Simulated scan of single mutants.
Amino acid sequence: MKTALRLLSVLILVFILPSLVSAGLWATQERPARWSEAKWGSAGILPRAAQSPEAAIYVYSAMTGGMKGALASHAWIVTKEKGGEYKRYDKVGWGSSPIRRNHRAPDAYWYSNPPRLVTSVHGAEAEALIPKVEAAIESYPHGEAGGYRIYPGPNSNTFVAHVLRSVPELDAVLPADAVGRDYLPHGAFYALDEDGRDLHLSLGGLAGLSVGARSGFEVNFLGLVAGVDVAPLALKLPGFGTMAWE
Rank of each mutant, 00 (worst) to 15 (best):
Y148R: 02
G93I: 01
Y140N: 08
W76E: 05
P115Y: 06
M1Y: 07
G212M: 03
H74Y: 00
A56K: 04
P106G: 03
G143K: 09
P154I: 13
A49D: 15
G204R: 02
P18A: 04
Q29E: 10
V92D: 14
L7E: 06
D171M: 04
K39Q: 11
L174S: 02
L224G: 07
L8T: 11
F217P: 03
A56L: 10
V167Y: 12
S166I: 01
T64A: 06
P175W: 02
V225W: 10
G153S: 05
S42I: 05
G187F: 08
L237W: 04
G196H: 12
V230Y: 14
F221G: 10
A145P: 07
P53F: 01
E81S: 13
R116A: 15
K82Y: 10
T158Y: 13
F189W: 13
G146T: 10
F189Y: 06
E30P: 00
A72L: 10
G147H: 09
Y86G: 04
D171F: 02
T79Q: 14
S61G: 02
F159K: 12
G83K: 14
G205K: 02
E37G: 07
L164G: 04
S139D: 12
A244M: 00
Y58M: 10
L174W: 01
D195P: 13
A105E: 13
R116Q: 15
A56Y: 10
G84A: 08
T3S: 11
F221Y: 15
S52I: 01
L224A: 03
I77N: 01
G241S: 02
A50E: 15
S166G: 15
L170Y: 06
M1V: 05
S97A: 15
G123T: 04
Y148V: 06
R34S: 14
L20T: 12
L206S: 08
W110Q: 11
P185L: 01
D195A: 09
E246H: 03
S120V: 00
P238R: 06
Q29M: 05
T64S: 11
Y151M: 05
K39H: 13
E194D: 10
I16N: 07
A207K: 01
L25F: 11
V179W: 09
G84W: 07
D90H: 10
V160P: 04
R48M: 12
L71I: 13
A56H: 05
G146A: 05
L7C: 09
V219H: 00
E194C: 05
Y86P: 10
